[in-house]
Simulated scan of single mutants.
Amino acid sequence: MIADVLTEAAARMDRAVESAKEDFATVRTGRANPQLFQRVLVDYYGSPTPLAQLASVGNPEARTVVITPYDKSALKAIEDAIRDMPNLGANPTNDGALVRVTMPELTAERRKEYVKLVRSKGEDHKVHLRGIRRKVKDELDALTGEVSDDDIARAEKELDALTRTHVDAIDEALKRKEAELLEV
């Protein structure tokens, strides 16, 4: 029982760390990165559709992203969705066959803003991990009477170590992203 609870907790925490890494990847650095456009939703025939389902996203140059839609009628909708993206600061151009997005250089001030944004996202993800820990601890406490108190105490120590490991993983990803942001 305890092993199942801890295994499930580890899986949930692993997913939370992966989610944090994906979230960090959506914050732009000096280079253009196709991952910036992962969470873009395009209004395609009245329903929000992920950009990845409507077009291929390529990176031919360091500061340019080229988006080639599978359906040319979606060009205007894709262009509008990218223009409406918060924190991008780029103006997409549509040449009738594809959308080209040239990323402007980041100023020192903008880089500092992005570092603050990434730190905030990192803290949100760590709070989520602690929430998982709290729920799992409640599940372990509910097992009182079915298993010994010593087993529960050992499981809580394992849970704390597991939480610490995953928080450290988020901190490490955060450090890498900050270094990437501050690199000129």
Rank of each mutant, 00 (worst) to 15 (best):
110 R>P: 11
99 V>A: 05
178 E>H: 08
4 D>N: 13
133 R>Q: 14
71 D>F: 10
100 R>P: 04
61 E>G: 13
94 N>W: 05
139 E>H: 12
4 D>P: 01
94 N>H: 09
161 A>T: 15
166 H>C: 04
162 L>R: 04
135 K>P: 04
175 K>W: 02
5 V>I: 15
183 E>I: 01
40 V>C: 03
113 E>H: 14
63 R>V: 12
118 V>Y: 10
40 V>R: 00
48 P>E: 00
126 K>L: 08
100 R>D: 07
131 G>E: 02
119 R>M: 14
23 D>C: 07
85 M>P: 10
145 G>V: 10
28 R>A: 04
160 D>W: 02
6 L>A: 11
19 S>Y: 06
54 L>D: 07
97 A>N: 14
151 D>K: 13
36 L>Q: 03
86 P>S: 07
137 K>L: 05
123 E>T: 08
170 I>L: 06
89 G>H: 01
150 D>W: 05
177 K>R: 08
7 T>G: 15
123 E>Q: 15
63 R>I: 12
164 R>W: 01
85 M>T: 07
77 A>L: 00
141 D>N: 15
51 L>N: 06
117 L>T: 13
90 A>F: 08
11 A>G: 07
34 P>A: 01
172 E>D: 13
50 P>A: 00
53 Q>C: 08
109 E>C: 11
29 T>P: 06
179 A>R: 11
184 V>H: 09
78 I>P: 08
39 R>P: 05
68 T>H: 01
172 E>Q: 10
165 T>L: 11
38 Q>S: 12
145 G>P: 12
110 R>D: 08
136 V>E: 06
95 D>R: 02
130 R>F: 06
73 S>E: 13
67 I>V: 15
86 P>A: 07
176 R>T: 07
127 V>Q: 09
89 G>D: 01
90 A>M: 08
25 A>C: 09
138 D>T: 13
177 K>D: 02
5 V>D: 08
127 V>H: 05
55 A>S: 05
136 V>M: 07
137 K>M: 09
9 A>F: 11
118 V>M: 14
103 M>G: 03
181 L>R: 06
79 E>S: 07
2 I>F: 04
113 E>A: 13
12 R>F: 11
113 E>N: 12
119 R>E: 15
8 E>I: 08
108 A>T: 10
72 K>Y: 10
26 T>G: 13
50 P>E: 00
150 D>K: 10
149 D>I: 09
169 A>E: 04
124 D>R: 09
98 L>S: 10
115 V>D: 10
71 D>G: 08
13 M>C: 10
184 V>W: 06
32 A>K: 04
153 A>I: 05
129 L>H: 03
144 T>Q: 15
96 G>K: 02
127 V>M: 09
156 E>R: 12
